[in-house]
Design a protein around this nucleic acid. Structure first.
Lengths: 328, 328
DNA sequence: GCCATTAATGCAAACGGTTGCGATGATGTC
DNA sequence: GACATCATCGCAACCGTTTGCATTAATGGC
């Protein structure tokens, strides 16, 4: 029913190849016939079928984007940026949600492989081995985790953790708790490593808690444990946990930030909306989305590259952190 | 490089059509040869190219999903539900963000048309006429707005507004303000109509403000105006505006809910995280996503159908609403 | 033992485009 | 005016798959 290239050819009285070239190689066709063809195409409402085109060119002009959980407020800004950026380059985005399941993840990459020119793997749960195997089927760019031999874009969490700890030290805190995230998370290891180092350098005590699930329950459930440590400040694995922790402290009658300061990571939209508003480490999620698209489009078909883009983080000071309470 | 149907045919010593049938019509091929073919396919890592298949079958097994703004917390749960539901039926989702732009919206539908079996249009900004025209190019299901002659799934906002107003009346409020949303929004009209009717029936005063942008600024910016109305309770167009309004009231030194009660609409994840937690009308977004996918898959190719699914809403009482302040 | 069925497979034409090659005519150069 | 060059366009094969039809062999009924 929809007009094909043959319909346009018939109406405009030229061969299909000429119509094809009018769209994909305009400089090869005479301006006057090109005008005529375009006119007929317009008339018939013709639009090239990109899937058919992809069959022979090998380029679909589609990009796959796989995330663990769309509903996690960390991802939408990244997705939005990637989508807009890709569309500006005439690419469309396939988006899939794995529900944090590594098997679903693998299946999705395989299913998408033929329909896209590459896949953006955000915070993958698969093993490095699995990921490397998949990279033979389709170009991959990993986001939020470095995978040896594959292009990746990561946030400088080491820097972020350092900034956060230094901020707290500057406020006079001498005992800080680190509310760790999920086991096996590269980000978590980075934060821990950097926080430990920074605390040691500043000669303050650091107590590490975890692993914990990276959501609100993972924060609220650890409120008691945090209080028991005796720390006067906490750095949480992400904003969700920080917010949950504030809730838990609130329920336990502990005031934030007067009694305990709390710092999150990610600067999700959430952090501006809570009471108190959340001091947090801003990770450039939108920039990460754009960078990932760029890397994919740049590398084209040479799958194996060691390119690693590290994006800087930034401390955003709001109301959940304050001076250490003075001992009486 | 990736194995094609011909490679499998060559290795297993049968014709390509037999290989094809092993996958798309297994009952037509001898069990023993089928086993052999499957074996070879497995060996070669063969997976059917869905785009090539679509070229001849006409079914891509892809669904387009177009939203105005992925970052709006209303959408992710809807997207997630639609994606999971679709994948369970062996469909994948193309997702695109229009940045609230009607032209981008139209362009996207056209661009996606050939690559999908249908498009889910969420809260479209286009005119009915535009939408109807597009429905000739690709099957459409509209979400969050009824379009005559097209399948649609909407929330029962009239019911929601009634529940909210009745809740406030029950708390003793006699003057309520309605913080309206964007001009041209069907949802907004529904809410206004129902709120007005309910208020009249209960003999309480209702002051309508707006139109306003449907975000936090649209709420915080109207705080002064709300105070001037003298109302002791407010129903906002959505949670985002409600949260913004609470912020604005807070800055103006007005306490929620002791001086003014605030009720939102949508029950986004946000509403549980703010202080005070937000009383709101829950709209079943996940169910809407699933219903939309079902309608699209059910109607198949008979484009024009008048099916309209209306989903029930529910009042969720939290801490931003309370008894009307007693006059001294 | 013959004929009608049926199961299993091969053949080849599609689907909607792209692209290397060759044909044609026009142009420029001397 | 002959020849090389070049712009323009048609021809046909091809991308990976499906599918109606033809072919073959095996089966069943009598």
């Amino acid at each position: 029913m929809p007009a094909t290239i043959r319909d346009v050819a018939k109406v405009s009285g030229v061969h299909v190849s000429t119509v094809s070239r009018t769209f994909s190689a305009p400089h090869l066709v005479n301006p006057s016939t090109r005008a005529r063809v375009l006119d007929c195409a317009e008339q018939l409402g013709y639009r090239p079928n990109r899937a058919a085109r992809a069959l022979i060119t090998g380029r679909t002009h589609n990009i796959g984007l796989i995330v663990a959980d769309i509903a996690n407020p960390f991802f939408p800004p990244l997705i939005k940026a990637a989508e807009t950026h890709a569309r500006g380059r005439d690419y469309h985005l396939f988006i899939a949600d794995t529900n944090e399941d590594a098997n679903v993840e693998e299946e999705l990459v395989l299913a998408l492989a033929k329909q896209v020119d590459g896949v953006l793997l955000c915070s993958p749960r698969m093993s490095n081995t699995q990921i490397e195997r998949l990279s033979r089927d389709v170009p991959l760019v990993v986001v939020n985790r470095p995978v040896p031999g594959l292009p990746a874009v990561v946030m400088d969490h080491a820097q972020g953790a350092r900034l956060a700890i230094e901020h707290l030290v500057g406020l006079g805190h001498t005992h800080i708790a680190l509310l760790g995230g999920p086991r096996g998370s590269w980000t978590n290891r980075e934060i821990r490593r950097s926080a430990t180092l920074t605390a040691r350098t500043a000669s303050v005590e650091l107590t590490v808690l975890g692993p914990n699930p990276p959501n609100e329950e993972g924060g609220s459930g650890q409120a008691e444990a945090v209080i028991r440590t005796g720390a006067t400040a906490v750095l949480a694995y992400n904003d969700l946990m920080a917010v949950g922790l504030i809730d838990g402290l609130d329920s336990a009658g502990v005031a934030v930030p007067t009694q305990i300061s709390v710092v999150g990571i990610d600067d999700t939209a959430l952090s501006r909306r809570t009471r108190p508003t959340l001091t947090t480490v801003a990770t450039p999620t939108a920039a990460a989305g754009r960078a990932a698209v760029d890397m994919l489009l740049a590398h084209g078909d040479d799958r194996r590259t060691t390119a690693l883009v590290t994006l800087q983080t930034e401390l955003v000071i709001r109301n959940s952190s304050g001076p250490a309470p003075t001992n009486i």
